[in-house]
């Protein structure tokens, strides 16, 4: 992979929006990798948390948006809990999800959910899932 860097992207409006929406400061991350090491779903992510943050630091929002990472993050805050710089990858993923959801781009169609799930799963799973994955 080769990427070209642009100042306009690094300081771009998308980056500012992500920082505002997540309350995180991307520059604070020094890429130690603790989040990726501890994240329970890191193994399944196209971009583990620290790498996703790295792309955001470089201004490459699209790279992160097209990865599955933000839809896999469950918000368990293990990343934040052990981050030496107190950065929450979970908050950043939530901001990215919100960006998508606020544009009406859902990750999950409700009609596709199996009936058995809707019947048996605890309500909180459904409410929470809708909040995170559906606009």
């Amino acid at each position: 992979m080769k990427i070209k860097l642009f100042k306009q992207e690094i300081e771009g409006s998308s980056i500012r929006q992500i920082e505002r929406s997540s309350g995180e400061v991307l520059k604070n991350c020094y890429q130690c990798g603790n989040c990726s090491g501890g994240c329970p779903v890191s193994y399944e992510m196209d971009l583990p948390p620290s790498q996703a943050i790295r792309f955001l630091q470089l201004g490459k929002v699209e790279e992160v948006k097209k990865a599955n990472s933000m839809w896999l993050c469950v918000g368990c805050q293990q990343c934040f809990s052990r981050c030496p710089k107190s950065v929450s990858a979970a908050n950043l993923f939530e901001a990215l999800r919100q960006m998508s959801l606020r544009q009406g781009k859902d990750h999950r169609e409700i009609r596709d959910l199996p009936v058995s799930f809707l019947e048996k799963a605890p309500q909180q799973a459904i409410v929470c899932g809708f909040r995170k994955l559906v606009s």
């Binding site: 329970p40 779903v41 399944e44 839809w71 896999l72 469950v74 918000g75 368990c76 293990q78 990750h107 999950r108 959910l113 799930f117 799963a121 799973a125 459904i126 929470c128 899932g129 995170k132 994955l133």
Partner: peptide, 19 residues
Amino acid sequence: IECCGAHLAMTRTDVVERL
């Protein structure tokens, strides 16, 4: 203190089953 997979029960049962 590890995560169970939480609301991924809705989309990714494989992840939940693993965690």
